[in-house]
Computed example of a mutant assay.
Amino acid sequence: MLPHERLAYSPITERAPLTLPDGKRMVVWIIVNIEEWDPTQTMPRTVLTPPAGGAPTPDIPNWAWHEYGNRVGFWRLLKMFDALSLPAVLAINGTAVETYRPITDAAIARGWEFMGHGYTQKNMQKVDDEDADIAKTTEAILNATGTRPRGWLGPGLTETWETPDRLVEAGYDYVCDWVLDDQPVELATRAGPIHNIPYTQECNDVAMMLIQHHPAREYFQRASDQFDQLYEDSADGARVMALVLHPYIVGVPHRAPYVRKILEKIAAKDDVAVWSGSQILDWYKGTGA
């Protein structure tokens, strides 16, 4: 299906206002992306251009740049979550579940939701067998946590024309790849509906730091501005904000303080809920929207 065949255009001003429980006015969900980069392949992203250009293998500098996030950066961020009693959602490659088992165990111990993020960090369009990729990711998370994942975030937000269909057939309830709204939306598939939970491209450390090359302080400034605007908008009906973190990007020493600042700002608001993707989905479906 083409995008317009999966969902109809719906201006937010013409919808019935959404109401959150317990006097809350907006929801923030925090997604921590844990990835495993195969050192025998071209690196998914680079911070240091090889002196002679091209895509050499092995690419130790860029593989190591990413690996720092799982060895050190994640644990720096985790300390902030613990200090502020904030939950997060772990979007994780299927292979990373066991490769970085201490991260998996830390998330389980804190009751975080696990979200499928592809079996490896590869565009879904380049996966040889999409059904098998989804199934292996699901199995890895289920075996580690005892719970089937309900949500899916494509590596790099990538999908094939059939990804939503295949996800529903594999038992998934929501995706995050359709960054087009501040509220959940329902997508049609050949096997029944699936919902998209608001994610973000621009309030995303990959876009800010690796593509647009902003200074570290931009992470707080942009996230803070987005939070303030969505908080204001929520006077007309609940809004959902995603905060996206990659430990190899914002878990480094010069950027982590700005993550702490936005987490502290969010945690200080009594009328803002910090939920998982499944909590957002269950609330939205319960509103009858």
Rank of each mutant, 00 (worst) to 15 (best):
H4D: 15
R6Y: 05
P17E: 01
P17L: 09
V28C: 12
N33C: 02
I34H: 01
E36N: 15
E36F: 13
D38I: 04
P39I: 05
M43G: 04
T49I: 12
P51F: 02
G53M: 06
G53Y: 09
A55N: 14
H66F: 01
G69I: 02
F74M: 10
M80E: 10
D82P: 02
A83E: 10
L86V: 06
L86M: 04
A88M: 03
L90F: 06
N93E: 09
V97H: 06
P102R: 05
A106H: 07
I108L: 12
A109Q: 01
R110K: 03
W112T: 05
G116E: 05
G118I: 09
Y119M: 08
K126I: 14
D129E: 05
E130F: 11
D131T: 14
L142S: 14
P149I: 02
W152M: 11
G156N: 00
T158D: 04
E159A: 08
E159Q: 11
V168E: 04
T189L: 08
P193K: 08
I194R: 04
P198E: 10
Q201M: 15
N204A: 09
D205W: 02
V206D: 07
M209W: 04
Q212C: 11
Q212W: 15
H214W: 15
H214F: 13
E218H: 13
Y219H: 09
Q221I: 12
A223T: 14
D225G: 12
S234Y: 03
G237I: 00
G237R: 03
R239I: 05
M241C: 04
I249K: 09
I249C: 07
G251P: 01
P257R: 03
K265W: 07
D271A: 10
A273W: 07
W275V: 01
S276R: 02
G277H: 06
Q279F: 09
Q279K: 12
W283E: 00
